[in-house]
């Protein structure tokens, strides 16, 4: 084929991109910074901590924040709250993030496949989803952890088995819309192989909602660990985690309110950071 440049073809000027997303994405930057600081604190816990988090000191139990030597006070067993908070972050952030990664991947792939191929495959996957959704989230997770035995390993497995359905539904819904878009038809019309259309063309366009959901899912997972801790199925004591700190502090809510409130604030800050990241991602990547 020879190239002939076409006379009379108008070379229109390219539209300048003045869109609001070109602005500095404040939300995303603040969210990422906040979350980065939390992660940093968790990593540097051994350096930053002033005490051993599981070292009991009954003589100095329930000191108020600001007491000499104990920045945020001590709990009912005299353990340093500041240090426990830092070490708790290690557990909670790790479990929270890791427990979201596998349901995210499994749910996204199944949703992609289910939405794209439809037919019996879709029917089968969606029936399984219906079954999982029919049970309340916590009941199912608790039952599974109970069956598998307490510990972080079981928590990962249980949350994965229950959590993928949300991602699957989100992604499937997006795929059903996207596959009727002409760019998906165009990709098919140009004969590209299916896996390539799915992962190169569709995935980047449908994954955003799932990523946003995963941000709140991390917080939910941390809360799930709290609940599991309640039932003695969570992180076994004396390992510090925010859930067990809140639970332990609750009995002293009227006298030493800060025992439950300080780890609570940590959970809230984590949630806030993730929510900011989610909003920032929408601003940055949503093309609708």
């Amino acid at each position: 084929m020879t190239v002939i440049s076409v006379p009379g073809s108008a070379t229109d000027t390219v539209v300048p991109t003045t869109r609001r997303r070109r602005k500095h994405n404040v939300l995303l930057i603040v969210g990422l910074t906040l979350f980065g600081l939390l992660v940093l604190a968790a990593i540097l816990a051994p350096v930053l901590a002033s005490h051993d988090p599981i070292q009991q000191d009954l003589a100095n139990a329930r000191l108020a924040p600001g007491s000499p030597g104990h920045l945020l006070g001590t709990d009912e067993l005299g353990r340093d709250i500041y240090s426990r908070l830092l070490y708790g972050a290690r557990i909670d952030l790790r479990v929270g993030v890791l427990a979201v990664v596998s349901p995210f991947i499994i749910g996204t792939v199944l949703g992609l496949v289910s939405g794209w191929f439809g037919g019996w495959l879709d029917t089968v996957i969606m029936r399984i989803v219906d079954v999982v959704v029919a049970f309340p989230f916590f009941v199912l997770v608790i039952a599974l952890v109970f069956a598998l035995g307490a510990g972080t390993g079981s928590i990962y497995v249980a949350i994965t088995m229950v959590g993928w359905v949300a991602y699957c539904r989100i992604v499937r819904g997006e795929v059903l819309v996207a596959k009727e878009q002409e760019y998906a038809l165009a990709a098919r019309a140009s004969g590209l192989p299916t896996w390539r259309i799915l992962f190169r063309h569709l995935l980047p366009n449908v994954v955003l909602q799932a990523v946003i959901y995963s941000m709140s899912d991390i917080v939910l997972t941390i809360l799930a660990i709290v609940t599991l801790g309640y039932l003695g199925l969570g992180v076994p004591p004396p390992t510090p985690d925010w859930g067990s700190m809140i639970q332990d502090g609750q009995q002293f809510l009227l006298t030493q309110w800060y025992l439950a409130t300080i780890p609570g604030i940590a959970v809230v800050i984590t949630g806030l950071a993730l929510a900011l990241i989610a909003d920032g991602l929408v601003d940055r990547f949503d093309r609708r």
Partner: peptide, 28 residues
Amino acid sequence: QMVFQDPYSSLNPRMTVGQTLGELLRYH
């Protein structure tokens, strides 16, 4: 080959024009 009706939805919003063309030229 086909040219589609809607110039707004018929191009993958997350690929540059070069990527779109390059992919086809390479795959075929």
